[in-house]
Design a protein around this nucleic acid. Structure first.
Length: 269
DNA sequence: AGTCACCTGATT
DNA sequence: AATCAGGTGACT
């Protein structure tokens, strides 16, 4: 599920629902879901604290607790973090949950069980988050910063865009969609792209993420079956063999760093 | 820079 | 039965 827009939607809804709530206790049902920490660390550090704020950083959800503790959650491929009315009634693929003093539960629900939650003192959480790259929807993400980063990387530009140490939040779908909008071939080495095209790429990244944030927020407000239907139409991702609506050539797929990349051979040179 | 491991469920 | 999946960290 989640890249930046989906994580933003999850984070916003959580913020609205649980800011100010008290965590009675935390229960880890699957021990690996707190990797690399032991489950007891999360259980002990979360219990009895009040939720002061919920923030997103890259694809991480940060739950700030009273007493200077932060719960950091990463949803990986299939995770979701959401509130249930009764902590005693949870989805089948619940990996851990926070039982609130009012009886509700915050559930890390993840069929593939790749998602994780950790507990950190505030300073340690900040240190970890400082290793992430720039927030693409913040004012610091400027065309010049993108040009500066790209100049230092020989990676294929699509792999570069997904590297969280440069820009944090882009994943397989929106990296491909941004390159399509910018008309850049995904295999182009980042350092070889001229500044004018990187400016176009910068605008494409901001646009595609803003579009996706809007639809992701709506999608997460609704029951599951409407999720896919409400996302704006993707131009290339998952559309191998379909004709490009601009040039009518067939969308192709290639493999980069072990992941599928979709692109239009006509539009992206 | 590539390959695997971590997992399960959907699709071919 | 095999392959694929919106992610990432730990190995070569």
């Amino acid at each position: 599920m989640p890249e930046l827009p989906e994580v933003e939607a999850v984070s916003r809804r959580l913020r609205e629902q649980v800011t100010g709530a008290e965590i009675r206790r935390a229960r880890v049902l699957r021990p690996r879901s707190t990797y690399p920490q032991p489950p007891s660390k999360v259980e002990h550090l979360a219990a009895g604290r009040t939720i002061e704020a919920v923030q997103r950083r890259g694809k991480h959800i940060l739950i700030y607790l009273s007493g200077g503790i932060v719960l950091g959650c990463h949803l990986r491929m299939t995770g979701n973090l959401h509130v249930v009315p009764d902590a005693g009634t949870r989805p089948a693929s619940t990996r851990l949950y926070l039982e609130l003093a009012d009886g509700r539960g915050i559930v890390l629900n993840d069929p593939r069980a790749l998602g994780v939650m950790n507990a950190f003192p505030l300073a340690q959480a900040e240190t970890l988050m400082n290793k992430l790259g720039i927030e693409p929807l913040s004012a610091e993400f400027t065309p010049d910063r993108l040009i500066e980063f790209a100049a230092r990387s020989k990676m294929p530009v699509k792999v570069f865009l997904m590297d969280q140490r440069f820009i944090s939040g882009l994943g397989n779908i929106y990296a491909a969609e941004a390159l399509y909008r910018a008309r850049i071939h995904p295999a182009t080495p980042a350092s070889q792209i001229r500044p004018a095209r990187l400016r176009r790429l910068h605008a494409a990244i901001v646009d595609v993420l803003n579009d996706a944030v809007k639809s992701a927020y709506i999608a997460y407000e609704r029951p599951g079956q409407f999720r896919e239907a409400e996302r704006f139409p993707l131009a290339v991702y998952g559309r191998e063999g379909v004709c490009c609506s601009v040039c009518h050539r067939k969308i192709r797929r290639l493999t980069q760093a072990g992941r599928s990349t979709y692109y239009c051979p006509g539009c992206q040179r």
